[in-house]
Design a protein around this nucleic acid. Structure first.
Length: 473
RNA sequence: GGCGCUAUCGUCUAACGGUUAGGACAGAGCCCUCUCAAGGCUUAAAUAGGGGUUCGAUUCCCCUUAGCGCUACCA
């Protein structure tokens, strides 16, 4: 039984890279009918914020992917501490009484890596206990095997065989002097306790994995499988940060720009993963069945945004693809909600609404377009743009609109075909090109010079609105 | 500095060691057409550099270069 977890730490908004990590975990778990666990890694009390936690929920809720179990590390501190002290008593860890360095900046790297404080590693158990009892602050470090050194190895599901000498691993901290576990300790202790079978996370943890394996081996002898994901980076090659790259790195930016969750998920999946059959647009079901770690790439992927356009063009394309192909019954409620967010109520029956959405969706690329570009289809107070005005300013056009209104009033069928027949007949009678009437009526009905087939707009809006709009020009 | 990872069109990517190096987005052009989209067609665009191994390297190995990650009592 597969058990995987997504373990964000609430120190910022939900990052686009974190979202992808969550999605890959989710796809893997759902494909194998395993258990998806959401675990909040909140052991860094100084940096955790409630706002950040809310932002994570906000993003995950929008994605609309479920999880089966939920934990917060801050509620499991005893478990973490127990492991640290267990290792201490077994001689696999030791107290380090070296005072914390202020900023951590000034460590000289020129002479090679820092591995441990030799004098601290050498302290006897008795002295260690005595100084601890005397109230001297300390950090508990893992005692990495040094004599002899050995090779730590594992096979990553994405990156393949990995190995490192213990001589290159520093004595990492387990428990801070304030009694809080470090990430490494809390993460491994919980992975063991929660019986995690697969750790799927960002590649920035690839080299940390050796430490974790050391911990797993010391603590339980059991260890999960690992799958590391390539990182998402900015066009300038730097890692995505809010400070440097702005709101594009936040999941909610896409939501607020009118993205469909499935389109965003689809886009993220294509960053660093490929089904290898040229498929691009996929439903959640397809993504789930197609997903595998073999398809995951090993190099970092660039999210292609610019200052002028914060949205990756591929994401935009995917969004418009999903918009125009997803079942209309599925899309309609989403559009309705979006319109309501813009304070527009939708009159008419559900069937009429779906009809309108279906007519215009093919030329829209985001949900926002329905409320903005599509306003005339849902409200009577719409703006008429200049090019549309020009179409109505064609000599005779306005008067023809009034005549057309009379014809429409008499058109019993009021279907796309009958409207077209009437309109072409009128054009012929008056000796004008049909285009004049077509363009003018689109302008009158929607305030825009561009849009769907003019004939289709008539039945879509309904006779009442059509007559009113034709007559008021 | 040490350790680790990575390197195909502008971007995302495909290619049992044998292909005219494929697809998609974005770009250019054409067709379709009542407009705008969509759709169809065409076009431009890549194997970081150098050595090996091999009859034959995008693919395997080494070096260089570049980028990224870790090197915190952050995660």
């Amino acid at each position: 039984m597969i058990r995987a977890r997504f373990a964000p730490s609430p120190t910022g908004y939900l990052h686009i890279g974190s979202a992808r990590t969550f999605i890959f975990n989710w796809l893997f778990v759902r494909k194998h009918e395993g258990t998806m666990i959401l675990r909040i890694d909140d052991t860094d009390v100084d940096r955790n914020t409630e706002a950040s936690l809310n932002s994570i929920y906000e993003g995950l809720n929008w994605l609309d992917l479920s999880w089966d179990e939920f934990y917060r590390q801050s509620e499991r501190l005893d478990l973490h501490r127990k492991l640290a002290y267990d290792l201490l008593s077994r001689g696999l860890a030791y107290r380090d009484f070296t005072p914390a360095t202020n900023e951590g900046e000034d460590r000289p790297h020129a002479e090679g890596p820092w591995l441990f404080h030799p004098e601290m590693r050498a302290i006897s158990t008795e002295e260690s206990d005595r100084r601890s009892a005397a109230g001297e602050p300390f950090v508990i470090r893992f005692k990495v095997e040094r004599d002899p050194v050995r090779e730590v190895a594992f096979t990553d599901l994405v990156y393949g065989p990995q190995s490192k000498q213990t001589a290159d691993v520093e004595d990492f901290a387990l428990l801070r002097s304030n009694g809080m576990p470090t990430y490494h300790l809390a993460s491994c202790a919980d992975d063991i306790d929660l019986k995690i079978t697969h750790v799927v996370r960002g590649q920035d943890h690839l080299s940390n994995t050796f430490k974790h394996i050391l911990l797993f081996q010391a603590a339980s002898g059991l260890q999960p499988k690992f799958a590391h994901l390539p990182l998402l980076i900015a066009p300038d090659g730097a890692k995505l940060s809010k400070r440097k790259h702005g709101p594009v790195v936040s999941v909610t930016t896409y939501r607020d720009n009118g993205f469909l969750p499935i389109a965003y998920i689809n886009f993220l999946c294509l960053l660093g993963w490929s089904p290898k059959n040229d498929r691009e647009q996929m439903s959640l079901t397809e993504l789930t069945s197609l997903f595998s770690f073999e398809g995951v790439n090993r190099s970092n992927a660039v999210v292609n945004f610019s200052e002028a356009d914060p949205i990756d063009p591929k994401a935009m394309w995917l969004n418009s693809q999903h918009l125009r192909t997803m079942p209309i019954a599925e899309l309609a409620p989403i559009v309705r909600r979006s319109l309501e967010d813009h304070h527009m109520s939708v009159p008419g029956t559900e069937a009429q609404f779906e009809h309108v959405v279906d007519l215009i969706r093919a030329r829209y690329s985001t949900l926002l377009d329905f409320a903005l570009k599509g306003r005339a289809y849902f409200a009577d107070d719409f703006h008429t743009d200049q090019v549309a005005k020009d179409k109505l300013d064609v000599p005779g056009a306005r008067e023809l609109m009034h005549v057309l209104a009379d014809r429409m009033e008499a058109n019993a069928e009021f279907s796309e075909a009958s409207v077209e027949a009437d309109l072409r007949k009128l054009a012929e009678e008056r000796g004008v090109k049909p285009g004049v009437l077509i363009n003018a009526s689109r302008a009158a009905l929607t305030g825009q010079s561009v849009g769907p087939s003019a004939f289709a707009i008539f039945p879509c809006l309904g006779r009442e609105r059509v007559l009113e709009r034709l007559r008021r020009v």
